[in-house]
Amino acid sequence: MGRKNSLELLAAGEIPLRYQRNFGTLGIEGQMRLLKSRVAVVGAGGLGGNAIELLARLGVGFLRIIDGDCFEVHNLNRQLLATEATLGMNKARVAAARVAEVNSEVQTHALPEMVTEENARQLLTGMDVVVDALDCIDCRLLISRTAQELKIPLVHAAIAGCTGQVATILPDGPGLEKIYRTAGPSGKGIETVLGTPAPTAALAAAIQAQEVVKVLTGIGEPLAGKLLYFDTGLHIYEMVNLG
């Protein structure tokens, strides 16, 4: 069963078995939209690995996976795609191989490179949504600006300790510069103090994947112009209107 067959079945009003348990939420129209969608995931680490897994299982038709890093031992605490077997391997390539195992209907384009001022437009062009799963504030600001210039919605997430945040940045809405005044000298935030444990990465990535679905299908209300901040240590869930 390939993506074409799934789309034909859906067009005929039938639900491919693979997506049966999506149906009650997505419906036929929503599932077709996902299968026809193109999403770039920038960063295939703690956030990106989880987001890629969820987007592949949901049936997003095309994933461009961008990451120039290779898995290291300190990634094993939280990064879904980091295993003892994948240490030393490029994250984008490992992610594409994982997607092929999970859902061969999803096309992937693994790009083992970092996002820079020079290549950002080229990497994001043609995508329906960009997922910001990076770990560097400067790079996050770069892809937020670029996505807005290209008129592509961007779903941002970031984590530190038990805290995380998710926001959906629309082309004509407030950008990430509302959240980050400037990057510090290291380009990092408080994760340098609090670390990045697995539950926080998985939670933020799950909300992020749900935002992608909402933007692509029109089902539900995206976090457009809003930031969801959570702190699972104290059961805090705050919504900040970015205005």
Binding site: L134, D135, I137, I159, A160, P174, G184, I190, M239
Partner: peptide, 29 residues
């Protein structure tokens, strides 16, 4: 920074009873 759930600049004036939230940068992934 947020005042009563809305992002604001540091120079924004406060009113009696306002709830001011202060967040540090979160950047990990």
């Amino acid at each position: 920074l947020m005042i009563n759930g809305r992002n604001c600049p540091a120079g924004q004036a406060l009113c009696e009873g306002d709830r001011l939230g202060l967040f540090p940068p979160i950047g990990g992934g």
